[in-house]
Amino acid sequence: MTTKTTPQLALTRIFDAPRTLVYRAFTEPDHLAAWWGPIGNSLPRDEMDLDVRPGGHMRWTELFAADPRVRVHIRIDLTEVVDGELLDGVMHVSGQLPEGLEPFETRVRIEFGDEADGRTRLEVRQWLADHLAPSSEAGWLEAFSKLDGALATFTGVLR
């Protein structure tokens, strides 16, 4: 998969823990269940299926404390995996979704890097489906930051 296109979402965060541990937190079921999603959501252990390797997958179900009817099925088909360093694949979101939300897919790339003092730099990037973000186009986030002011004004008007 090409990494040349500009992701619609790019986040970086430094964690005060060794890289191998942060990687395990993403790739081992008990760890992932301990932190994924906002507080109150839960991931049933028996619905987690992590097969972390190139061509493998990560599957789990997310339950919402706020709405017991919701059962969100997440499946990441992994295309690129480098042990301790990289997870890249397509995330499919389906199941009994909150009202008004339809199933969709999005590409995610998660990179783990060493920082000083045994800390870890995590970089998460997320793309919409490739056909929606042609490689010749850049500047998504730039465009949105430019529009921020206008949006603030409009949301003010709407309320």
């Binding site: 986040l11 541990l21 937190a25 301990a34 932190w35 906002p38 997320q126």
Partner: peptide, 19 residues
């Protein structure tokens, strides 16, 4: 999505601190 990740990161921070 930004919020999904940042809220999860906050929890991950706590989880890693415990570990």
């Amino acid at each position: 999505y930004e919020r999904l990740w940042t809220e999860s990161f906050d929890r991950l921070d706590d989880h890693l601190a415990r570990l």
